[in-house]
């Protein structure tokens, strides 16, 4: 079995996380924001898998499973919201959805 630096995996995970973050920050379309959030969750899962692999324990994968179920629930509710938003406002631009404004 070859060996990989634990750092390397974590750096890859953080790059993916930051890319997801950039997506959330730069895109205006709600669908792209949801996609970017998936990326970020996935990056967090990768970090857990890496930790589990380093200590050779199953706990990392268990945590990944929880993140997975959370992401599934989140995406189903999020996409339902997107449908409603599009239905009611005829737009997907987050900049125009400012009803929570003070």
């Amino acid at each position: 079995m070859s060996s990989i630096h634990a750092h390397t995996v974590l750096i890859v995970a953080s790059i993916l996380f930051v890319l997801g973050l950039v997506g959330v920050l730069t895109r205006k379309n709600v669908i792209f924001i949801l996609l970017s959030i998936e990326i970020m969750l996935n990056a967090a899962g990768l970090a857990f898998i890496a930790a589990g692999a380093k200590w050779q324990q199953p706990d990392g994968q268990v945590m990944f499973l929880f993140i997975l179920s959370m992401a599934a629930a989140e995406v189903s509710v999020g996409l339902a919201l997107v449908l409603q938003i599009h239905h009611q406002h005829k737009t997907l631009d987050v900049e125009q959805l400012k009803e929570l404004k003070d």
Partner: peptide, 13 residues
Amino acid sequence: EKMLVTVVTPRQV
């Protein structure tokens, strides 16, 4: 530090 990659089987999970 390097880590030794060993397979964590579905059974363990």
